[in-house]
Structures are given as structure tokens and as C-alpha cells.
């Protein structure tokens, strides 16, 4: 089920100052689609998300974004000592739709509470953000994106540092949001997860492949993406042994 095109990149190159980090990007995200973004660390996933969020101008090619974008930063970079409740964080989403000096009215609070309910955290609205688990913090940031009325969500490695139960709950939430018509891009290292998404984008300094997982996630593409050899794990799916191993504990 796909709808209108939310984002479209053609021959896009992005980076910092004049240094290109990733190039040759030609892909799109449609409403209701889940896009898995694969690639090694330094391959360009976070740089791409920063460009889509508007923080980096394209160095070449075109990038068209038709709807409001909500970015979920890697949650371990959030400030955990901040004196904000889950509700406060969700309410920050209202800033995207109103001038900065407008205070949050009753309607905004109701919307924020609804968003927290949608991510399954209605009962933690008054909890301090820093005291929530990693998975719960990720879902609070999702609620903030919902309050923003973002139509396109960018999740930068949402599962790193998350236990299996939280990851499963978050994946189910992503599915529900996509079913509601949002476009969702998820940066991940997990090939099995990527196979569940509608499309995948493989990056390693340039675009290696883009398309439905069944067509794209072939052995040569994966090897080119990670620059390593596939290790067959007995009794399981394929695993990756990256040339440059980097653990996210």
C-alpha cells in the first residue's frame, strides 16, 4: 500500500563543507512506506538524515521533500539530566507548527497526551525523560514527531541499546504508523529487520542499491555495502562480519 511521494532524491550528493560523504543517491519514500537504510558506520546514514532534516544543503543533485519531517536522534545522545517529563518532550512537537512565542494551550496538551497513548506511554506522561528506559525514550521521541504532525519520520538506529521486548514493541509501532499513512525511514544494522520493510537503501559512501528487500538484499549487494564477507550462522539467517567491526553496546 503506497500513497503520494513524500521524499524524492535524484543524483543527490551530501556532505560537510565541500567534502562529499555519500553520493549517487536516487530513491524515494511514499506515504505508508517503511524504508530500511543499511550501511556501515560512516557509510552516510546519519549524514543523509541530517540532510533530509534540513541541517545540510545538498552538494549536488536534487532533494525534494513534500511533507513535514520528524527526526528521532540516536537516543543515547539525548540529555538525560534534563528536567523534562515525557509530556514536556511530546509538547515540544507543537513548536514546529506554531511561532516560538506561542504557549501550549489545552488542545496541544490533549494532542500530546494522545500521542503518548499512541506509543503506549499514556501512564508515563509525568515521568522524567531521563528516568525512562531506552526503548521508552525512543517512543517518547516518536510521540513528539506525531505531535509535530510529521508525515515522514527518520529514525536513526532506534534499536541500538534496546532490549528485545522494546525492539519488538517499537517495530510494531512503526508498522502501525506506516499503516496510518506515514513514511518511515529507519537506519539499522539488522538485516532481518530490513527484510520486513517495504524498501531498503544500501549505502557505503555511495548508493549501492535501492528497492524491495527481496530484490535488493542479495549476497553481492550486502558484501559491497559492508565491505565484508557473509558468515553463515548455523540455524539462523545470514550474519554480517563487517570489515570494520564496531559494536553498539
Amino acid at each position: 500500500m503506497t500513497g503520494e511521494i513524500l521524499l524524492e532524491a535524484r543524483d543527490l550528493a551530501i556532505g560537510y563543507d565541500r567534502r562529499v560523504v555519500v553520493s549517487g543517491l536516487t530513491f524515494s519514500i511514499a506515504a505508508g512506506q517503511r524504508l530500511g537504510v543499511l550501511g556501515p558506520n560512516g557509510g552516510g546514514k546519519s549524514t543523509l538524515f541530517r540532510a533530509v532534516a534540513g541541517a545540510l544543503p545538498p552538494l549536488a543533485g536534487s532533494l525534494v521533500i513534500r511533507e513535514r519531517v520528524g527526526v528521532l536522534p540516536q537516543t543515547q545522545r539525548s540529555r538525560l539530566d534534563y528536567p523534562v517529563s515525557a509530556l514536556d518532550v511530546a509538547l515540544m512537537g507543537a513548536l514546529a507548527r506554531h511561532p516560538w512565542w506561542r504557549s501550549a494551550g489545552r488542545a496541544e496538551r490533549r494532542r500530546a497526551l494522545e500521542a503518548l497513548a499512541a506509543v503506549g506511554l499514556a501512564d508515563r506522561a509525568d515521568s522524567l525523560f531521563g528516568e525512562l528506559s531506552g526503548g521508552q525514550r525512543q517512543r517518547v521521541l516518536l510521540a513528539r514527531a506525531l505531535v509535530e504532525e510529521a508525515q515522514l519520520l527518520l529514525l536513526d538506529e532506534p534499536f541500538s541499546g534496546m532490549d528485545t521486548a522494546s525492539a519488538t514493541a517499537t517495530l510494531a509501532l512503526i508498522d502501525r504508523l506506516a499503516a496510518r499513512g506515514l513514511g518511515v525511514a529507519i537506519a539499522t544494522h539488522d538485516l532481518d529487520q530490513a527484510r520486513r520493510f517495504d524498501t531498503v537503501l544500501c549505502l557505503n559512501g555511495r548508493q549501492i542499491a535501492f528497492g524491495p528487500p527481496a530484490a535488493v538484499l542479495t549476497r553481492p549487494v550486502i558484501e559491497e555495502t559492508y565491505g565484508g564477507a557473509i558468515v553463515d550462522v548455523p540455524g539462523g539467517g545470514g550474519g554480517i562480519l563487517p570489515a570494520h567491526h564496531h559494536d553498539h553496546a
Binding site: 534540513g54 519531517v69 520528524g70 534534563y82 523534562v84 518532550v89 515540544m92 514546529a96 510529521a150
Partner: peptide
């Protein structure tokens, strides 16, 4: 919002 999330406070940059 800015202090919480210095890169971007939820308004698409």
C-alpha cells in the same frame, strides 16, 4: 526544546 535537542528542536531544521 533547543537545550534538549540542540541540533534540531523539532521543526524540520
Amino acid at each position: 526544546a533547543t537545550g534538549f535537542d540542540p541540533e534540531r528542536s523539532g521543526s524540520g531544521g
